[in-house]
Structures are given as C-alpha cells and as structure tokens.
Design a protein around this nucleic acid. Structure first.
Lengths: 291, 291
DNA sequence: TAGATTGTTAATCGATTAACAATC
DNA sequence: TAGATTGTTAATCGATTAACAATC
C-alpha cells in the first residue's frame, strides 16, 4: 500500500502572493514526502503547483485523479483545450499512442510552449523525455471540460440555422444529446425533426422541468432572443449558446456564449482592409489637412 | 480657408519608446498649431495620439477623415467595434442622434471606460460634455472596418449550414453580397438557391477570376476543408471564414477566422462544471491520496 | 459659469513566449 | 549514460480598468 502513488497537488490562485497554509495528508504520505521532498525548480514567487510523487512508481491508473481546481484554469486555456481534444481524437483513430508537445501543438496550430503551459494547468499529464499518452490526456481534458457528464441540450428556433444545428454531427460525437426542440411558429411546432417533435415555445418552462437540459442553444431572430433568454433563465437554465446578434441580458450566474456571424465577417473585412493598406504602403503615419 | 478645421493625428506604435520624428504640415496649420498648441494631458511615456484642433470651429464634415493607422487598433478592440455598430444601427432607427459612452456601452454590454478607450483608437469621435453623434460614429466605424467597400462573398459547401448562411439576413444588411455558391455534390451543383446557380467546386479557380470575391465562407465537412482552403488560396483569396472543426493551414498573408460550434459547446460545458463545483463547495484546494 | 462627458493616463491584470532545470 | 521532452520560471506583451484632466 505504501508503494502506491501518492500525489498531492496544491493549487493557488495566480494572484495570491503566497501559498500560506498548505495542508498535507500526513497520515499517508509524510514518509514519502520527506523522501522525495518538494524541490523547487528555481526560487520563484509564482508557485502554482507542487507535485510530490513516489519515485518508485508511475502514476497509478486506479488513483483518484487529482487536479487543481478548474477555477484556476485561464479562460484562454480552456478555449484551446477543445482544439487539443479534437487533434487527440484523430490521433487515437490513427492508432498513435504517444505524442510530444511539439507534435500535438503543430497539429492544433499553436506553439509548443503554449501547449505545455496550457496542459500544466490540468496537473502533470506527460512523461519527461517521452511525451503524452494520447488516450490518457484525451480523457483528462474531457474530464476537465465536463464532457464525461453527458450534456442534455435543447434548441430554441427551428429555422434554417436551427435545422442545420440539429444535423450537426459534432453534437453527438462530443456527448451532447439534443433532447428538445422548440419554435413559436404554429406551422413548425408539432412537426418532427431528427426523431424529435418540435414543441411550442410557450411550453418551455414545463418542458424544461421534464427534460432537465443543462445547455440551451438559441437560434431565434434577434428581436425574440431576449424574451426567450428570460424564459430560459426563469426555467433554471444556466448555460446558453446564442446565435443572435444582440447582447443578451441575464443574471451573472448564467453563462452566455454568443456566436455572431456578423462580427466574424466584419473582422475579416477589417483584416482585408488592413492588408490593402499594407500593400499600398500607405499610412504608417498619416497626416492630412483640409482647408 | 484658414478658419477650417486642421486636424493632425500622429500615430505611433504602443511599443515605440518615443515618437521621435513628428512632421507637421506647417504650410497650412503652423499658425493654428501655435495658437492651440499641443498640451499633453500629463507628462507620460505612452503618447499615442496628439490632437491639434482649431478651437474656433467644430469638425468639418467635408474634411478628409484623418485616422491613426488601422494597424494600431488592438484586435480586441476591433472585435468589439462590430458590436457597437449594431447598437448604433438600432439607435439610428429609433431616431436617437446623440449617445453617451455610458449609454452606448450599456447597450453593447461593455463598460464605458472600455468603450471610450476603444473609440479613442479611431481618433476623436465625440464631443466632451455632449456625447457621440450616432450617425457620424456609425460611419466612422464602418470606414475603419472597411464595410463601406462592399465585400463580395463566395460560399463553398451548400449543405444544411450553407443554406442557413445563404438565408442569413445579416449578410446583405452589412454590405456583404453573396456572389457565388459552390458544392462538390453533382446533385447540388446546378440547382438554384437564392437566385444563384450552385457551381461545381472544380470550377472554383476560374470562377474566382470572374467573381472577384474578397471573402470566402467555408461550410464543407471537416475532411474536405483543407483541400478547399488550398484551392481558395491558390485562387488568390485572402480572407476565409471557416465553419469546419479543423485548424486550416495557409500562408501567413491569408487571414482565417474559424467558428467552431464544438468549441463553444465545450466551453459551456466547462462553465457548467465549474459552477457545479462552486455550488457543492468543493475543491478550492483539492487534496487526495490513494494507497 | 457649472455640469457633463470625452479622451488619456497609469496601474493592474491576464496571456504569451523563450529558455531551461527537472527528469524520464 | 546521453538524448529527449516535460513542466516551470520569468520576462514581455497586450488588454482592462478606474480615475481625472481637458473641454464642451
């Protein structure tokens, strides 16, 4: 028993000046901890995690996975984890078992330093001199993102975009199950789509109690978006993905992600313009006067 | 003539230690400049813009609009400009002529300080003590984003998503004209959609020469995305908006924006999980050992 | 003038990056 | 052991924010 892995990760907020009251489960591991000891890489103030590992053994697959609180994972990192996961998925398909940070980063389109930093927030996941175990890392990212919980998704607005979303293969592939469809058009509600009967949006509150969704996807026209959002919030939804152009108003405990096609197009327009500027060699410093 | 506005904006990169060689068109404005003079707000090293304005008159609408180079506008700011523009559009519809930073920021869902900072990168656009002229500011943002140029858009992949995009009202409303549709499915190419005949994707290169698109929208399956992207690049496209899940490889001069539904869903999943953690009061610091 | 609001500053915060010690 | 690669550090870079002088 004493030969098993003993891993303790202490997480502190980046902004904390110091980790002031570290508590270690000494009934089990004090002997080991003394043996291997915490050896700081260099003296520094940004001590975020310390790993104390029994050197006689590799991580035990049966061990309860220990992690820093997800609250300490930067938003920018979380946004990239999904990308790493997709690459890891293709590697699994190809039968690749080990991948280096260089390899994974290249396939995901980021620098290897950034990748390693990102993964370090999930705790130690690789083996120095070797690389990352593809399926283990994949499982770890899924766990951190909460993808192993099987989200239930409802979709409000079964127009062109809504139908396209229902047909989107990435939903099921990632463990997101569409469990309810809603629309306010009497011509649409009552019809079946993808094995589900579209419900009238007025039944939203009641249906939510029945369907217990964790995520709502909003694909309604802009002028209906806020109203539907309010109903979702009232029904207890806390995660909303909106495709409407308007900024939705909701309590702080409701997380809203917005995908705005217009914004994307306008960003491209800006880049195109800037490129034209660069090409014509204009305005590094622009001075112009009219009289 | 000398009574007209004389505005000179000198832009320097944020990272420049100092603006070392400011040149002023003294044939026109030296007398005015001496009069009003550059009066630094406070002595500081981050002198980004200096405005020298004839105090006798308000900005002349006929004046060539002078701006800092768009290269100096932070990416984060550009991404928000589109949001401001949308709000300004609704204000125009409502007949509102003047809006304060507080009002505009509130409607756009950002803080007023951030809004003012964002707008400051576009040069002076408001009147102190009054606010911003809605239509003037609107026009200015459109100009900076290059929306006044009338982009020509081609769409590759006329599946569910592609059809939804064709029907998206925001395209035309923002001056983006869809000028070509492409698909590789013989059953689809040749059919008409929204007044356009879908072309076979093999004709892409030839058709690009004819259609002169500035933006391509990619709505093809993941495994076809890179190949189509290569063709687009070969055809001279420099702005691509992709809805595929894969990170596309392209030369540095090609700007690629990717909208990844899976990423958005997974981000929501993460937030949901984190919220569950907070509610159960778990793991501010997690310590767990297995033996 | 007095009140209001912009545009700018500077402090802070968060993300990126290269380098390298730790370690397999 | 020697070579390889992770995980961590610290410097840098970029974005956010509150406060306030400038100015209408």
């Amino acid at each position: 028993m004493a030969s098993q892995a003993a891993t303790v990760v202490i997480a502190a907020r980046c902004s904390d000046p110091v980790v002031d009251d570290v508590v270690v489960d000494d009934t089990v591991s004090s002997n080991r901890l003394v043996e291997t000891g915490p050896v700081p890489h260099r003296r520094g103030t940004d001590v975020r995690t310390r790993e104390l590992t029994d050197v006689t053994q590799q991580p035990d697959p049966r061990a309860v996975r220990v992690s820093a609180s997800t609250r300490d994972i930067p938003q920018a990192t979380v946004a990239r984890l999904a990308g790493y996961l997709r690459v890891l998925g293709t590697l699994v398909e190809e039968g690749v078992q080990i991948v280096s940070s260089e390899g994974l980063a290249g396939a995901a389109g980021v620098g290897s330093a950034k990748l390693r930093k990102d993964l370090s927030f999930l705790g130690p996941n690789g083996v120095r001199g070797v690389g990352y175990d593809v399926s283990r890392l994949s499982a770890r990212i899924e766990e951190v993102l909460g993808l192993d919980r099987g989200h239930r998704v409802i979709l409000i607005g079964v127009g062109n975009l809504g139908r396209a979303l229902v047909g989107y293969p990435g939903f099921a592939r990632r463990g997101f199950a569409i469990v309810g469809l809603f629309d306010d058009d009497p011509a649409v509600s009552g019809t079946a789509l993808d094995g589900l009967v579209v419900r009238d949006v007025v039944t939203l509150t009641v249906a939510c109690a029945e369907l217990a969704p964790t995520i709502a996807v909003l694909a309604v026209p802009d002028d209906a978006a806020q109203q539907v959002c309010d109903r979702l919030v009232a029904a207890g939804l806390r995660c909303i993905l909106s495709f409407s152009g308007v900024a939705l108003d909701a309590p702080a405990h409701v997380e809203i992600r917005r995908v705005d096609l217009a914004v994307e197009l306008q960003l491209l327009s800006f880049f195109e313009m800037r490129r034209a500027e660069i090409e014509t060699g204009s305005v590094v410093r622009e001075e112009s006067v009219v009289r």
